[in-house]
Simulated assay, not measured.
Amino acid sequence: MDEHVHEHAPPHPSQNGPQLYFSLSDATREQLGLRRYPDHDRGFEAAYAVVRRRIHSILDALDPSPLPKNHRLARRHAEKLLVNANPDELAHKRTLMLRVTNMILAMSLREALPLLEDHWNGSISIDATVIGTYAKGLSPDSPVTSTDPDAAWYVRTTKHKDPLALDDLTPAQQNKKGAKLQKKKDRIKKRLFGYDASLVVARDPHHDGAPLPDGSANPDVVPALVIAFSVDKPSHRPGHVATEALQQVHDSLPRGYLAGDRAYNGQKPENFQLPIRAMGYEPVYDYAQDQLGVQAGFAGAGLVEGNWYCPPCPRNSRTPPRT
């Protein structure tokens, strides 16, 4: 009977309550200037309020945006706040935000560190994935901002073209005589209001991570692990944001191949290619069909897919196979 009552007894407030508060030692609580509340229902509510206020204080110190959240703001006022903000302070807050959030991510990798150290050569893939917000996205010409004013639209078409040109949100293109040109609209495949998270994923270039014949994971193969990330508006600064994410990879981890899609191989060298090579990565890119083969020439030498070849190079070696 006693065991039955024990199994269904309500959990103690310190078990379901704000662990960040009740698990603090007396020395830490004194260092932070927190009073000690009794461990009962009213003490729980008071402690929860303390934790909530402290978390908001941390978020305020890390928020790299001067715009208030959770209510719509007149766009003129928002633009004024952005103009008057201190760019150095915002950059410092963004650095802190990336450092703190990636430290939280690193806690999830502690158990996997031995596997990374023994079976990983430092090769990674970098890619951006969209994260939706609860806020409603508005048109750029709206007189007010969204309740999440730092987010933006992500729109993907079947041809992966610029989304803003699809909904007449950008000025109409004109011919030489000033007449508007008719644009053929591509079918929208995905539309979302939110952010892009640039993820750094550890990969093993020699194994695909396929499970063993019995369906279990191969203990000698590195799984796809997110080891660092950065966040920004969708498609606004892909090279910069990817570089920010790569800078969060711990110095103790090795550097190997870096694979990225076509969002990165067209970036300016100073925004992506040069920084990643300075970090020790060797980039691997995918190119579109019209970017393959001979792209330029000089004094008889041919530029073939990023490398120069001498004039005697066989012509069939300069032309990739077509699929």
Rank of each mutant, 00 (worst) to 15 (best):
A9L: 05
P11Y: 06
P13K: 08
Q15A: 14
L24Y: 09
D26T: 00
T28V: 13
Q31W: 02
D41W: 02
Y48F: 07
V51K: 01
S57G: 15
D63T: 14
P64A: 05
P64E: 06
P66N: 08
P66F: 08
N70S: 15
H71E: 04
R72K: 04
R75Y: 07
E79L: 14
K80F: 01
V83R: 11
N86H: 01
L90G: 02
K93E: 01
T101F: 14
T101K: 15
L105K: 08
E111A: 15
L113M: 12
L113C: 06
P114F: 13
H119P: 13
H119C: 15
G122E: 01
I124K: 09
S125R: 08
T133H: 08
G137Y: 02
P143T: 13
A151E: 03
A152H: 01
D162A: 10
D162S: 14
L164T: 06
A165Q: 07
D168L: 10
T170H: 10
T170S: 09
P171L: 14
K185D: 01
D186K: 14
R187S: 13
R191H: 00
L192Q: 02
F193R: 05
V200W: 08
V201K: 02
A210P: 02
D214Y: 14
G215W: 05
I227M: 02
S230V: 02
A245E: 01
Q248H: 08
S252L: 06
Y257C: 10
L258N: 04
G266S: 09
Q267M: 10
R277S: 14
M279D: 09
Y281P: 12
E282Q: 12
P283A: 15
Q295N: 11
F298N: 05
A299K: 15
V304E: 07
E305D: 07
C313N: 00
N316G: 08
